[in-house]
């Protein structure tokens, strides 16, 4: 999967918010942006860390976490095309941690450049605002699903969500790198109940669990749960 990600030509930025910047400024932009590879389970940045810039996800899936006391709550699943750390623009520190769920490729854009572009190009500023709006929307949606959906439904949603991002990149049925605690955090339930429900799914042959690999076999059946 990662090999494929690495083959994306450098004009991948055409799809992201920076597409609205003019070609002239794109020059300075391509010079100062930096691509990085994040392995699954590696932190991209941590909550409270000094914000140096924003990240654009090019490939792979990441999760955002918020640390409270000893427990970490997963806020959201981040897919390609999303921007991370947008709050860096207005505040000095990041307000959540980001961790790779699968191997991922991100593009780092330093804060001074973002601010400069924002002041020079209004369309860019509007695009950033739009991205923020979508982020808020997704976050609110997630808090609603925590209230209204059963844990089974939440797990099914999560599995489908992660599976779809992987499949769209590599066609065949790909295994999800699986850490029980993480997934439990994502679905907002205890790790024990997660295992119970996954076991149930496995008996119905909807998913397949092997050590830390998870495969979705019957996406339709999972979709019907929702």
């Amino acid at each position: 999967m990662l090999d494929k990600a690495q083959n994306i030509p450098t004009n991948a930025c055409d799809h992201c918010v920076f597409a609205s910047t003019t070609t002239e400024s794109k020059g300075s932009f391509s010079d100062s942006r930096k691509e990085m590879i994040i392995r699954s389970n590696d932190f991209l940045f941590k909550e409270g860390q000094l914000a140096m810039g924003i990240f654009c996800v090019e490939a792979g899936t990441l999760i955002t976490l918020k640390q409270a006391e000893s427990k970490a709550t997963v806020l959201n699943v981040i897919k390609p095309g999303h921007i991370l750390g947008t709050n860096a623009i207005t505040s000095a520190t990041y307000q959540y941690s980001v961790k790779g769920l699968t191997d991922a490729k991100v593009c780092f854009i330093p804060k001074p450049l973002v601010i400069k572009l924002m002041n020079e190009h209004l369309p860019f500023k509007l695009a950033i605002m739009k991205a923020l709006c979508q982020e808020i929307e997704a976050t609110q949606q997630k808090s609603l699903s925590l209230i209204y959906k059963s844990s089974k439904q939440r797990i099914a949603t999560l599995l489908l969500e992660v599976a779809s991002t992987i499949r769209s990149q590599s066609r065949e049925k790909a295994a999800i790198y699986f850490v029980p605690e993480e997934f439990a955090g994502l679905a907002g339930i205890a790790a024990k109940s997660l295992m119970k429900i996954l076991h149930e799914f496995e008996q119905k042959q909807w998913v397949q669990c092997q050590k830390n690999q998870l495969m979705v076999l019957n996406a339709n059946a999972l979709g019907k749960l929702l």
Binding site: T73, L75, T86, N87, Q95, I136, T139, Q140, K142, S143
Partner: peptide, 8 residues
């Protein structure tokens, strides 16, 4: 955004 996140 901050509010929405702390709500989760």
């Amino acid at each position: 955004l901050k509010l929405a996140e702390s709500k989760i």
